[in-house]
Amino acid sequence: MTPFSYTRAGDAADAVRLGAFGGAKYLGGGTNLVDLLRETIERPSALVDVAGLPATIEEREDGSLLIGAATRNAALAEHRAVRSHYPVLARAILAGASAQIRNMATVGGNILQRTRCAYFYDDEGSRCNKRSPGQGCDALDGFNRIHAILGASADCVATHPSDMCVALAALDATVHLQGPAGTRRLKLTGLHRLPGTRPDLETALEPGELITAVELPALPAGARSTYRKVRDRASYAFALVSVAAVLEADSGTVREVRLALGGVAPKPWRARKAEDALRGGPATVQAFRAAAESELADAAPLRDNGFKVELAKRTITAVLGDLAGVAA
């Protein structure tokens, strides 16, 4: 690790004041950042520890949930309201990492975790436009089995590794931010950027801006939700494909549907084409498959990850089938 100073922030205003200096980074649980410090991929001059900021989960009268950004992943998945009203979120978090890491990782840190692309991590041996802008991308022609099939660019094909964020995308979550210029709110789906020609710019956050909370709107009363993750081993592995789905079906008709994909794109991928194809239509396996086909029509697989296209289609179809109670 390169040298840095360490300060604990007392509150969000304190954190933003400390974080305003160039080279400062916010530290949540550290489960990703400490690793990146050790690999000298991250070289901050100062760490501002925000893990002691509010970690409360507030159930509000309108049915929404306000989650402090320092809430640990494990605490969020275990919370009674999340388990009963947002099972997609509890399942997504529990599908990620290990129990030890979920005990450490914060909600804010999970959202801002960086890709697990091996070429991004290989500082000494590989080219990476995300790590060193303009250098080139060795994943494009390398071993790219785990890489993106949607939303990638000629400069970067890395995926966003979070499970939790895929559920948050499907839940229409809003992120509360505080920065030198004040507070603002942003949809989670608008927080992460697609790589384009600048894969080093990963989010819409301004310099020094801090995630202070995540807000989940109430789901429709009849909605069901779940998360399914497909991976190389049964536990403790990143997603090859994952699907977060919220479905409200009535008498065989799709009233409302929200669908997001993980493991296939540089950001939590809200599958709006599939949603548009489904809304108001029949809740049948055929319709689910057709919607999946429409979402994946733009897929651009690389040498090693063509399997993700069919895997994503099948997983979408199966998850929606489960939620609708129709057999695949």
Partner: peptide, 19 residues
């Protein structure tokens, strides 16, 4: 490297001691 922090299991390799 798993240890217990206030009874919760964590990974001591991904933790800075000052935290």
């Amino acid at each position: 490297c798993t240890v217990l922090a206030d009874g919760e299991r964590i990974l001591s390799c991904l933790a800075l001691a000052v935290q």
